[in-house]
Amino acid sequence: MLNFFLKRIGVVIPTFIGVTLLTFSLIRLIPGDPVELMAGERGIDPARHAQLLAEMGLDKPLLVQYWNYLVGIFHGDMGTSLVTREPVVKEFFTLFPATLELGLCAIIIAVLIGLPAGIIAAVRRGKVTDYTVMGMSLTGYSMPIFWWGLLLILLFSVRLGWTPVSGRISEMFWVDEVTGSMLVDAFLSDEKGALLSTLHHLILPAIVLATIPLAVIARMTRSAMLEVLREDYVLVARAKGLAMPLVICVHALRNALIPVITVIGLQVGVLMAGAILTETIFSWPGIGKWLLDSIRRRDYPSVQGGILLVSCLVILVNLTVDLFYGVVNPRIRHNR
């Protein structure tokens, strides 16, 4: 067991170094000079340009810059934003709770709807329900997030007036930041109606962000369930006269859940990618929108630091899922 854990953790180290190298080189492969972007049409004096590049450490050879970046990481220093002059770590952790809150709500929605939908589709295989669920999940999976978000805003916020257009809370409230989670902070605050306003603001972006993971979970649950439902022990359970819901929930679902859990773990990466678009549409002040702005401004330290921290999160979640997978399924750890 320990051997399995160590092997798994050992794989993480080269992944982490690979991510640092990728983030460092990819942002530099995009043409564009942060100083020129800052100066705009006015332009900048060449001497001042060189001076600013030197101040930002961008005048050094790439290898030196990469080495400095790595040394910084191991000292917990991800650098300072070229735009705001704030430490990247501080900026990231100021915004991360908003993304985490949105991501958690999205994954809860995706699991709560996706799992039962997949089960129903599997049980009613080949029937209208199955086709409906699969058709809808395929549509959800293929839906461009930007378009989907705007469509929901136009319908529910502008036409029906049921939900607010964007933001985390109504502009009429000012909730002091305690935990960073607006739901918790609004609950703790004295402002009446703040919690309701927060929930109101969370609905649409969470649905939009949940759409793709929901579709994936529903499809995965269906195929896993179909496989399990063919197994002998399910037939035995049914032959014993057990009620169908009991067979599905106790005997089939528990075994079908293993690949589904892996897929849910993998959705963390999908959620982070989706967050970039969802946060932009809904003016959600999270790291997705911040990363996009940083890329546009060629804010190298913010992009490098931000992507690295997000990657660490994805690696961590996948590692946990992997280890958990090994714990629940002994065949996996013994095979390795």
Partner: peptide, 14 residues
């Protein structure tokens, strides 16, 4: 940041 969303907010009175 998005101009379409700004317009939607203006229409919704936000």
């Amino acid at each position: 940041p998005d101009a379409s969303v700004r317009y939607a907010k203006l229409k919704a009175g936000e």
